[in-house]
Nucleic acid binder design. Structure first.
Lengths: 312, 312
DNA sequence: TTAAGTTATGAAACCGGTCCCAGGTCAAGC
DNA sequence: GCTTGACCTGGGACCGGTTTCATAACTTAA
């Protein structure tokens, strides 16, 4: 493989001069520039990316940590991320964790090893303290509100406000017994925490009977539908953590010829459109774009993306 | 940032010895190994990834070329890819092209510059000849059948067989006037070419009246539905290039209180399940996994993934 | 005429690792 | 006692770039 030294030797000029030509710097005589360029073209030379990265101390690559890639929530964020990164000449590397803490730690160590310029956590299992510890090795961006005074950049949607807003709307429309579907029931999951909080503000204490935990896919939603359909006393509406899950809930009722159950989804996917139920569009592409900008900036700013309630 | 030389200096041993310790090679005295490890731990040392990559001449990174990330077709492939890559200790970098030839060329040059060990084309605009030219710089994997005697690795689904199979099934069930929806109408798109060929085998020449081109999203499908609904004489079924597009077709008929139009989708997404129309599951995750294995292998094998017809 | 600034160039250090090779110790086998 | 081979160690070349710095020629303004 031909390298910069070959070009230097063949052109008769120094490596420094060739480097200047490569990087379009000034202070190179026109004739020499032309000759060097000619030889580079002739030898079909392309500078080695890794060597440049080593010398420059940066890779122009950003790691995106997520539990899995095939979920619409993460897919939409990634979409925004990839577009923004492309426009800025950065690369996006996908880092699946399956919610495994050890794996997350591995990615943090890769940040230390300079494999990425920054890490974006679209979801996390590690504590904020852990993440802060790694902050000095590169920018770290969260996709949730870490709270004030945290030295971490974050892009997030105004989940709580939008949830409260939606739940109040539901309450005003006479839905008093609201079922809730969540993915995970731990403290770290921002979505879980915020949903509980919003529910509390509107409906008061969340009866555990009204809660279905562990829903990620359509099938899970179907099971949630089954659960609520058999609940006595029942619920009169269901607030879900995703459109596909909401579609599952509705479909269970449909399949069993029960009266349709009003459902609220999230993400504004095709499923809520087809089944015509209300949803919250968190504008996740915008979230991804914002997260990318924070990842390349040096600030620890917080960026709020407005959610949109879509009534159907 | 502390580096291997610091560790060497502080431990009193040579860089070579420290390197051996890092890489768990033998021929290091136990005491020295222990001491070096202690110092590395003490200084919180992690070897620089980029430097290792440069020295090793490989990045353990694979670039995945695709038009855009947010389409379910590519999302499913990426999902399989990411899982397989993770299991093998490789990283996946997303390379969007928006079908731009220049951008594709850029990624090929990045392969030359050793930024990736291999490139996987989930879709391409470049000619096979161009890709073959870059083969010497790293493994190149296609997600389509490049034909025999091509020195390129490829993982693909048996599209043509499954299309013929499905169309014959439809014909046997009395559907004689089959509409067809395609994304793009060029020769390079494998999907387009194969659909046309399969149609020809079953129904004979494709009447351009029966063809709707330019569908990628649900909305496009909706427009296709509008087109076919107004067509005189009409079609009695529609073969689409994706479930979401099929959903759009069906929804147009539904919204306008027309008799439902039998539709065939692809990818087995939630939308075809919700609207209960038949679809072809190409097992795209398996395709991604196979593509990854080809990317890391040195062979130019072709790998066929069986498609599955799901009747509803 | 001279000091200061601009342009041009290459040597060499540096980024942070891997690995080949030469040299040395030590125990087993003959 | 000598050869052989396994074990251990460090020097230094190498991967392929960037960048600092010293040097020099050539302008330009005072």
């Amino acid at each position: 493989m031909t390298n910069i030294h070959d070009i230097a030797r063949l052109s008769g000029y120094s490596v420094s001069t060739v480097s200047r030509v490569i990087n379009h710097q000034k202070y190179v005589a026109d004739e020499k520039r032309a000759k060097v360029e000619a030889i580079m073209r002739q030898l079909d030379y392309v500078p080695n990316r890794v060597a440049r990265d080593l010398s420059n101390g940066q890779t122009k690559t950003i790691g995106v940590v997520m539990p899995y890639a095939n979920h619409p929530y993460f897919a939409r964020i990634i979409d925004g991320l990839v577009s923004a990164a492309f426009a800025a000449g950065y690369k996006i590397t996908l880092l699946p964790t399956n919610y495994d803490l050890t794996i997350e730690r591995r990615y943090l160590d890769q940040l230390r090893s300079k494999a990425y310029d920054a890490l974006i956590f679209t979801s996390r299992s590690s504590s904020l303290e852990t993440l802060e510890k790694y902050r000095k090795y590169g920018q770290i961006v969260l996709c949730e509100d870490p709270g004030d005074d945290r030295p971490l950049a974050a892009a997030y949607t105004d989940r709580e406000a939008s949830y409260v807003n939606v739940l109040q709307w539901a309450q005003q429309h006479g839905f008093e017994k609201m079922g809730v579907v969540l993915s995970r029931n731990n403290v770290i999951s921002a979505s879980t925490r915020v949903t509980r909080s919003a529910y509390q503000q509107v409906y008061g204490k969340l009866d555990s009977q009204h809660l279905f935990v562990g829903a990620v896919t359509y099938e899970d939603g179907y099971r949630a539908g089954e659960y609520f359909a058999h609940l006595q006393p029942g619920v009169d509406a269901v607030f879900t953590n995703g459109d596909d899950i909401g579609a599952g809930v509705q479909q269970y009722y449909l399949d069993h010829r029960l009266a349709p159950i009003p459902t609220i989804g999230q993400e504004n996917l095709l499923s809520s459109r087809l089944l015509k139920f209300s949803t919250i569009d968190h504008h996740l592409e915008a979230l991804g774009t914002a997260a990318f900008k924070l990842a390349t900036g040096q600030t620890t700013t917080h960026e709020l993306i407005k959610s949109e309630f879509i009534r159907r």
